[in-house]
């Protein structure tokens, strides 16, 4: 599988001690230029540099047609009474749709968009929770409940009870 990641996923996942397990799921993870430009912390940049060096990560360029569609989503979502989507996330979702890549995000606006907007319902989105569950299903994680707690503790990312229940984790 190939994925494209936005800032929200990257900056949490990089804090996870087993972060490199993600390359067991994805042969390549793209980082859009707009996401790349937002990242400045040493930890994140070092991990990206390592990923680039090992050919596990690559920069996804800005393509004007995709860019225009992302800008359209940014505008359309601002007309709704719900958290809108910003350009970097919108771009990831558009790329996910056009290229059939998995979109890695924790961004509520992007997650909501692929749920309520019919045209984007086929886009596959994974948050850290779905990535951990998939790693567990493939045998790279031994015990899922403990791992989810560890992830949460290491990254200070809280998973909603609604989602944990949905996956039988509480």
């Amino acid at each position: 599988m190939i994925a494209i990641t936005d800032t929200s996923f990257l900056i949490d996942w990089v804090k996870y001690t087993k972060r490199d397990l993600i390359f067991k799921l994805f042969e390549l993870i793209y980082i859009p230029e707009s996401v790349f430009n937002e990242v400045r912390s040493e930890t994140t940049l070092l991990w990206i540099a390592e990923g680039l060096e090992n050919n596990k990560m690559a920069i996804f360029p800005e393509i004007s047609e995709l860019r225009n569609e992302a800008l359209r989503l940014v505008l359309e979502t601002r007309r709704l009474p719900i958290r809108s989507v910003d350009f970097p996330e919108a771009y990831c979702v558009v790329v996910g749709k056009v290229q059939n890549y998995v979109v890695l995000t924790e961004n509520g606006g992007a997650l909501a968009l692929v749920n309520y907007y019919d045209e984007y319902k086929e886009v596959k989105v994974m948050r850290a929770l779905e990535v951990l569950i998939e790693l567990y299903k493939r045998g790279f994680i031994q015990e899922i409940k403990g791992e989810v707690k560890d992830y949460s503790r290491q990254t200070n990312h809280l998973f909603s009870n609604r989602d944990l229940r949905k996956y039988g984790l509480i």
């Binding site: 400045r40 040493e42 940049l45 070092l46 540099a49 680039l52 060096e53």
Partner: peptide, 12 residues
């Protein structure tokens, strides 16, 4: 930091 990481990356 950012430039140091980039230069290291370029060297490698």
């Amino acid at each position: 930091v950012r430039l140091r990481i980039a230069l290291d990356y370029y060297i490698e």
